[in-house]
Design a protein around this nucleic acid. Structure first.
Lengths: 211, 211
DNA sequence: GTCTATAAGAAGATAGAC
DNA sequence: GTCTATCTTCTTATAGAC
């Protein structure tokens, strides 16, 4: 990795731990192995480093979508899978979503940085909500909607069902960001959550037969 | 309100909007209507102001519990209420919880400040998780447990049921903190969430009769 | 308790040699 | 591209008058 990218990487690590204001240009430079003034040959200011991180994240976000999928390839393939999903596969879906958000290094650092900086700039607030609320709800809602259409799940309101699926995952994620030592506990809760979600929303076979 | 408390109040407002590091002692003093050096007659440092806010919050937290209750008096009275709760009353419970967290001025500013500062200090992380995760889950879990015992609701796992009740409320709250313009939408989602929660977990009367 | 003046130090950024 | 030296500005905090 060249110096220009190493600066972004080390800056992101520091910003995600201490917040923008508590990180000094000299700190970033030290981790890269250069002196602060050298850093200004790569970026014209501290703010420019921050902006470059956000821009790089925007580039990565398009690749990221794949990681939310059960087979990691494309949504069309997913659609087929979700029409015949089992409880264990639903748990795998939740776990994949959760573990990706939790452990993907770049994603995790960026999310923590946004958590700290979200009130500082309306644009950052919008990015946070889109990335960690609206986009996951939209994508998961599409998948759960497929399962409803296929008769695997049943509900009167897919959007609320999706909220019931994702909100606990989101909350457990924020707990783990804050207190990594609770990760094992969170994973158990995750699995119990999805098992109960499946029991609640699974199509009642007797109901189908009685029609 | 005396100067000493006004300093805490204005500091909390600024900390919750910009974060500790981006607020200068002179900013706080200006809002109070004094000059920065005068402020040092009341608190020995900027950090001392922050610490005093956290201490004051600890005092207020004991009073706060009441606001999470349906009748605002005590848990014993709540227990009786929850044994015979209707869907509308369950919605009222969710709404009260949500609106209290959302609109109580001190609570809101403190929560936003903790959101920004949570990764800066392990103690603050613990306060956040206790106050906005563990305590609500514990209290709501107790109430929902009463409803299960009374036969109003049914579930195999009260803790997961409580997670299904509270996690969406928590997520909607963080959305509103970040984007206040989505408050009306969040309130509608809140109500739809609780109606669906009630439908899902309400005791099936036919099941009771068949036993 | 509030003020003005100011010390002390930190941090972002630039100049110019190599 | 990296360095040392330095500038400039900002920010916390203190000194001491009123």
């Amino acid at each position: 990795m060249d110096t220009k990218h190493r600066i972004l990487d080390e800056a992101l690590t520091l910003f995600s731990e201490k917040g923008y204001a508590n990180v000094f240009v000299a700190d970033i430079a030290e981790r890269v192995g250069i002196k602060a003034p050298s850093l200004y040959k790569h970026y014209k200011s501290k703010q420019a480093i921050f902006n470059a991180i956000v821009e790089e994240m925007n580039r990565r976000f398009s690749e990221e979508a794949g990681a939310l999928r059960i087979d990691g390839t494309n949504a069309a393939a997913d659609a087929e899978i979700y029409k015949h999903i089992s409880e264990d596969e639903l748990i795998a879906l939740g776990n994949n979503l959760f573990l990706y958000f939790l452990h993907d290094d770049y994603t995790k650092r960026f999310r923590k940085m946004l958590t700290i900086e979200q009130f500082h700039d309306k644009k950052l607030a919008d990015v946070y909500t889109k990335k960690y609320v609206d986009d996951p709800l939209s994508y998961q809602g599409m998948l759960l909607g497929l399962m409803v259409t296929a008769g695997v799940l049943q509900t009167e309101d897919v959007n609320i069902m999706t909220l019931h699926f994702y909100a606990p995952i989101y909350m457990l994620l924020t707990i783990c960001d804050r207190e990594p030592e609770r990760e094992a506990e969170a994973l158990k809760t995750m699995e119990a959550h999805i098992r109960q979600f499946n029991r609640i929303y699974a199509r009642d076979e007797e109901l189908i037969q009685s029609k």
